[in-house]
Amino acid sequence: MNKKIVQPISRPVIGAGGLTGTWRTQRPVYDASLCNACLLCWLYCPEVAISKEDRTIDYTYCKGCGICAAECPKKAIYMEREESR
């Protein structure tokens, strides 16, 4: 019998819920020329997938909810349909 005690302790790791980018049906596309760096997209991203510095989007984990595009006052992010993967 294995006497090792398994403790139900989780540790913070990137991708704890899997590669959540595969859930996406639409992807946000960022246009730097329209951006006024208000950072609303960064603040409201539920997945922390938008960088504060240059608003690059981490497509590995972005679930494509579209909050960034809906909240952007300059329309610098638009949603594009995911065709295939």
């Binding site: 990137i14 704890a16 819920g17 539920p46 922390v48 997938a49 981490d58 579209g66």
Partner: peptide, 13 residues
């Protein structure tokens, strides 16, 4: 940041 990318939450949670 309290959240690390790749959560199990629904999109737009």
């Amino acid at each position: 940041e309290y959240i690390i990318p790749g959560t199990g939450a629904c999109a737009g949670c």
